[in-house]
Amino acid sequence: MNNQQSVRCPYCGETFETEIDVSGGSQEYIEDCYVCCRPIVFRIEVGADGELTGLETQRDND
């Protein structure tokens, strides 16, 4: 199951749309910004019902 989310890049500040795959449960992964191509760390929390309950982004070097 995928969720479309607006995300603000912690490097360039631009907002872009991305799909969050919640089928794997809570996880951490890296995805490049669609605008400046820098690596963003995504931390997602998925509830017992399979719904996205939390989304946190930060720079890869933080």
Rank of each mutant, 00 (worst) to 15 (best):
M1I: 08
N3E: 13
E17Y: 15
Q4H: 14
E56K: 11
Y11N: 00
S6P: 10
M1Y: 11
G47S: 13
I40R: 01
I44R: 01
L52I: 06
N3M: 12
R38C: 05
F42P: 02
I44Y: 00
E14Q: 12
E17D: 14
S6K: 15
T57C: 02
Q4M: 15
C36T: 07
Q58L: 07
T18M: 08
F16L: 06
T57H: 02
E19D: 12
Y29V: 08
I30K: 13
C9M: 06
E31L: 10
V22F: 04
I44N: 00
E14P: 09
F16I: 02
D62K: 06
A48I: 14
F16N: 07
I20V: 08
F16K: 06
D49H: 12
Y29I: 07
V41M: 03
E28S: 15
G24Y: 05
E45C: 08
Q58C: 09
M1F: 13
R38V: 05
S23P: 08
V22D: 03
E19M: 13
G13Q: 04
V7K: 01
P10R: 00
E51Q: 13
Y29N: 11
Q4N: 15
G54K: 12
E17P: 10
I20K: 06
V46C: 04
G50R: 02
P10K: 00
G47A: 11
I20Q: 04
M1S: 10
R38N: 08
Y34Q: 14
E14H: 11
D21N: 13
G13F: 03
G24V: 08
D49G: 14
V46D: 02
C37P: 06
G47F: 03
P39R: 02
I40G: 00
C33T: 08
E14L: 11
E17F: 13
N3D: 09
E45V: 10
N3G: 06
G50P: 05
I40F: 06
P39K: 02
N3C: 10
R8W: 02
E56N: 08
E17W: 14
G25P: 07
E31S: 11
G47Q: 09
V41Q: 03
N2M: 14
C36S: 07
F42E: 02
D62P: 02
G24W: 03
